[in-house]
Design a protein around this nucleic acid. Structure first.
Lengths: 344, 344
DNA sequence: CTGAAAGCGCTTACAG
DNA sequence: CTGAAAGCGCTTACAG
């Protein structure tokens, strides 16, 4: 069965294709009667406009692309969910691609999306991304672009972020005011702006509160996994057995560390206090529950799409495209892995 | 900057659009010299074929759609990752939609994908899906379709599944042979084939081993959350404080139950043994680690796409489309939440 | 109120 | 080896 076309309807009713097209789109210059007839027939035959033809005619596909480092990841899938939800409201579909934290793959995925002529692109950068020519390709091709979470400051486009530095500062300050005297930091890789900012927040909090910053207390992790949490918790105990607080870059790692400390019979928070980052739902579930920074993934997805949508519209109306950076608020969630009152 | 078209290249080189098109696609009837010139020019101008025009001409979009109940879910995102990986190898992009376990939304999403004329559709059904007219719409529109994990037996199409009944049988038998005498079951909602099959596996294992099947030991959960795990663990202890084993429909719920038992000072596995389902990575991480059934999500995604791809090719070649049901093996992973040897 | 015509950018059967 | 022409299915400026 070939799909129904405008021509089919036109032939059945003995009118022109033009009239059928206009009737279906409620053009004012078509008679009520014709409209009714056309619409009824379309309905009966279950007519669906050929999206390929519409795309070609209108030069838009009502489809956007999103590239994230990793699909199987609580934070990114929350963002994805937010994007899908918001896109659906505006009649857009979402093509999902992942970079696997690889610069080369990210480049390739961008090329795919550009070839596909999606109406806009949303990206959270891979950790290994250091050059931005591929990102600028998007901008040069005149495709609306919004960067979220893992962004590059130098790229000229709209962005949705959290204030990693401030959040990390808050997290570390919480450890300080609850009485910790020697605070370590498990940080992410050297490149991503995120891990830099969280590290700086940690460092500044120490300095602002008259504590010494000791680089040997900062551990640089690679893949930010549960296993690394276990491994670096062990290492930390060996290197500095008098540490009494840790600010950890992400909850998954923090949970690994907690698991190791539990195994070794270390009392959290009395021997060591721990603060994570992201507020993964497991954090409220493990024992002890994890103090952390809430990072609003779903909301970030919604906002990112909204910005993108605005730019898509601006482009269509040929009004100048304005870039905007939205900073979403984060929140310190105090749970059992840290002390609430100052130890005396 | 308007995108480069075949016409642009043709004009620059003083040849016809036909020749440019053929040269780029390496038709044998174009001279080597022309091919070289055309390709060089295309390269220099960064020519990218207009996907919209190609789609219209070839009636295919090299895009497939996938509908899952929930994006933020470890199993489904693993499947999604497998699908994306495999699709990319074959040059297909993936549009992601979620049904939120809602029949109505599932219907709507299918309609969207059909209107979009994707080359194929992959679905894991919502729990609330009871009629299959919308699924049959896909089949009637001649769009290749593969159902995975949450399938409907009555729908005529290819499927990728695990043998839930057998896996549940294995899980329950493990509890029996390790010495449990009174085994409860936390099951999923009544409709999905999955929860039915896992329940039947549980029941059959009991009967086959000469144990009595007691319906009051079967608890029907709704949203299969961590919280429900906690809540039903409490309920179970109140109703039947002599239960010494539980087979739980999914790991997340099992982890909730473990957390509650831990809080109440119940010894797992000596007081109560627990077996979960899915092998979520947290299962190897909580304390005690959870015995479970490994459900190969990533592989399921890969296989589902492979089946779909085969059908897309068959359709294109106008060879008859053959349906196939692939059953992926599962595995019992014995960890610390169950006993390994028969208690005496 | 209706319709003929052009055109979006490509592919391909056909003629030369 | 090259190219004119038709056509995929739609939209819309224009004529009547």
């Amino acid at each position: 069965m070939k799909p129904i076309t405008l021509k089919d309807i036109a032939e059945i009713l003995g009118v022109s294709v033009t009239t059928v097209s206009k009737a279906l789109k409620d053009y004012p210059d078509v008679s009520k009667k014709t409209k009714r007839l056309v619409k009824e027939t379309a309905q009966t035959l279950n007519y669906k406009p050929n999206a390929f033809a519409v795309n070609l005619r209108t030069s838009e596909s009502k489809t956007i692309g999103i590239i994230i480092p990793e699909v199987v990841h609580h934070f990114f899938s929350s963002v994805l969910k937010g994007i899908i939800a918001q896109a659906e409201k505006k009649g857009y579909l979402v093509i999902i691609l992942q970079s696997n934290e690889s610069f080369e793959l990210e480049k390739k995925q961008i090329d795919l999306l550009l070839s596909k002529r999606v109406d806009g692109i949303l990206i959270s950068l891979a950790n290994s991304t250091i050059h931005f020519d591929h990102i600028n390709d998007i901008i040069n091709s005149d495709t609306p672009l919004v960067l979220f979470d893992k962004i590059a400051k130098v790229v000229q486009c709209s962005k949705v972020i959290i204030n990693d530095r401030k959040a990390a500062y808050t997290a570390t300050t919480h450890l300080i005011t609850s009485g910790c005297k020697k605070i370590a930091h498990f940080r992410g890789p050297l490149l991503p702006q995120n891990s830099i900012d969280r590290f700086l927040g940690y460092k500044n909090a120490l300095l602002d509160h008259g504590m010494t910053y000791d680089p040997s207390l900062v551990y640089i992790l690679n893949d930010m996994s549960f296993e690394e949490g276990v491994q670096f918790a062990k290492k930390l105990l060996k290197d500095h057995n008098d540490v009494d607080g840790i600010f950890i870059n992400t909850d998954l790692v923090a949970i690994g560390a907690i698991s190791e400390f539990n195994n070794q019979g270390i009392d959290i928070p009395n021997d060591i206090s721990i603060v994570g980052f992201s507020n993964w739902f497991m954090s409220s579930v493990i024992s002890p529950t994890l103090t952390t920074i809430d990072q609003p993934g779903y909301k970030m997805g919604k906002v990112a799409f909204k910005l993108l949508y605005k730019e898509i519209k601006q482009k269509k109306q040929k009004t100048p495209v304005t870039f905007k950076t939205v900073e979403l608020p984060t929140e310190l969630i105090i749970r059992d892995s840290s002390k609430t009152t100052k130890a005396s």
